[in-house]
Each structure stands twice: as C-alpha cells, then as structure tokens.
Design a protein around this nucleic acid. Structure first.
Ligand code: FES
Ligand code: FES
Lengths: 158, 158
DNA sequence: TATAACTGATACTATATTGGTATCAATTAA
DNA sequence: TTAATTGATACCAATATAGTATCAGTTATA
C-alpha cells in the first residue's frame, strides 16, 4: 500500500515567506537603507535568492534602493498597506482554487456553473483572509511579543 | 525587467480535481459499479492516472471496487460526508500555510509567536471553508443546474 | 581617484512536485 | 476459455520551486 501523498500542501512558498521576513526587517528600520547582505545573514535567507526578491519588490514599488557603499533597501509603501495577499500575488500568482474544473462533459454552462461559483466564493474567502494580514500588523504583533529587540538570541526550532 | 512569477497559484491540483469529478460520477450512479475506463472517457481524465486516484480512495474507504468483467467502482461513504478538505488532505497533504516561518532570529518564542497564531488561524479558515463543500452538495448543485442529464453535449470552454 | 561595498540584471543549476504512462498479475462474468 | 476488469507498482516527463553564479554599474570614503 503505497500512498500517493504524504507531505503537507504549502500555501506560502519560500518566495513569499522570505519576502515577508525581509519586509519586516525593513519596516523595523524605516528611514535608513539596509543592505541585502545584512538582511540575509540576520534572517537566514540565501543571499542571491533574497536579492531577486528585493528587486521584484522594487518593481512593485513596495521598497526603494540606493546603490553603492552605504546603499541598500528601504521601505517605500506604508507597511499597513502591504497585505500578504499582495505578496502572494507577486510571488505565487493570483490565488486560484482550480482552473475551470469539470470542463466539457459535466458542466454544461460556464456562466451558470455552480461549481464555479462555489470555487470563486472560496477564492474570495482565502484572499480576504490574507488581506487582513499586513506587514504593519505583523510587525506590531512581533514587537509586542518580543519587546526587547528584534532578532535577539537565535533559537532553533521547527 | 523579468518578473519572477506570472502563472496563478493553484490551490487544487489535478489529483484533487480529478478525484472530485470521479466521485461525482460515482455518486450519480450509486448502487452500481462503474468502470475506471468509462469514467476516464466520459470525464476526460487520463485512464492510468485515474486508476491510481481510485485505488487511493479505496484505501481511504471512500469507495469500493469489484474486480473482473462488469466490475468497477462504487460509492461507499455517504457523499454528504465527503468534504473537499478530506480530498485535499488525501491528495495534497494537510493544508499548511507555511512551515514555521520566521524561525530562529525573528521569532523568540514559538509558543507565544503571534505570526504562528495568525498563520494557524488562516489555516483553520481555509480548511473550514473547504469543509463546507461536500460531494453530495456539489452533486445536488450540479443536477439543479443541469437538470436533464449529467454529461450531455460536450461543450468546450476554458 | 582607487577601491570596496553595494545594487541591477540575468543566466544557470539542482531539487521537488505534479502530471502522466506502462506493465503484469489476479479476478470474474459470460 | 477469454475478454473485461481491478491490484500493485515502477517508470518517465513536465513544471515549479529553490538556490547559485557572474558581471556590469554606482557611490561613499579613505
Ligand atoms: S467547471 Fe467549467 S464552468 Fe463549470
Ligand atoms: S515563526 Fe516559528 S514560532 Fe514563530
């Protein structure tokens, strides 16, 4: 009896995961430029991987950069306006529960298709749940939980 | 400017998608055995792929089978008791928004970690939304929308 | 004004997951 | 006896995710 699936289905990929962490790092130091290198080492994100993510976030006007010595990245968009939904869309594409499932045979009329409605309803729910979570909120929550200092003693878990 | 991601993030994979369709096919013919072949052709699912899915669903006691001529598969579990959540778990693994993100540095105390709470809350929401959708419900909806006959004229869309 | 610390751009590789095929043995109705 | 079926399982292909490498351009500052 060999089962088909065992691992867990990931909703957030590393892209999004790392991007959130990087944004939290930047949001906790608004006004000054933070280098990719320091973010990478402090938050344990592969350097070159992170660079790509940062560039992508520049393109989406979430952050800005300054080249050269003492350069780095800085928050641009209000952290309270950056939702996880937005990040998912940037790094994983639009949330879509399924392509039009049940095409052809089963579903006679796309416009009236109940399945489609059901699916779109869920897409909406998922999306709006992630929309409630902003970088700003996460940061405040983090600071409340870890009042002393962000990134204190490294603790290994998970 | 080469973007990182363009396609959409799929919440349901083909596994789950096909499994749902197959179950709908079986649920609409309770009491009689339906062959994998006929499901495959009628619903446009790759035959061998479908066979694996059906076997997996047997292992999970959703359906039963009969070997030999005139054999096939038949609904076992009450369609109203089969949720999409269950199918996702079988074919895609437990819904998990992210592994423990923000490990080490950022998050000092796993038990108190707010991010973790936020994430688990969303996991719950996603899961419970999919729990509301059962095979039974989908079937009734389908029949209501397509009163005459399941799988009538093939219509190409999507 | 040379240099080292930076980002911009982009190509590349490795690994994992998803999607799909193929094969052969066992069962059973006709 | 045979053809239609499932059981079991190995295999392959395509795609997506994760991570690395390279080189050119910018800039503070020694
Ligand atoms: S599934 Fe395609 S429209 Fe209903
Ligand atoms: S992220 Fe690991 S516990 Fe907070």
């Amino acid at each position: 009896m060999v089962s088909i699936k065992q691992a867990a289905m990931k909703v957030l990929t590393k892209n999004t995961d790392y991007a959130i962490r990087a944004l939290l790092a930047l949001a906790s130091k608004t006004g000054s430029y933070v280098s990719a290198k320091s973010i990478a080492t402090e938050h344990d994100i592969p350097y070159q991987f992170l660079r790509r993510l940062l560039q992508e976030m520049i393109r989406h006007n979430l952050i800005v950069s300054k080249e050269g010595v003492q350069g780095g990245f800085m928050m641009q968009k209000d952290p309270d306006e950056i939702t996880v939904t937005e990040l998912i869309e940037i790094f994983q594409g639009k949330v879509q529960v399924s392509e039009c499932m049940f095409r052809k045979q089963i579903c006679g009329n796309r416009a009236r298709c109940v399945l489609r409605h059901e699916i779109m309803r869920i897409e909406q729910v998922v999306q709006s749940e992630f929309e409630k979570v902003t970088i700003g909120k996460l940061l405040r929550d983090l600071e409340a939980a870890n009042p002393v200092k962000l990134s204190s003693t490294p603790i290994t878990h998970n």
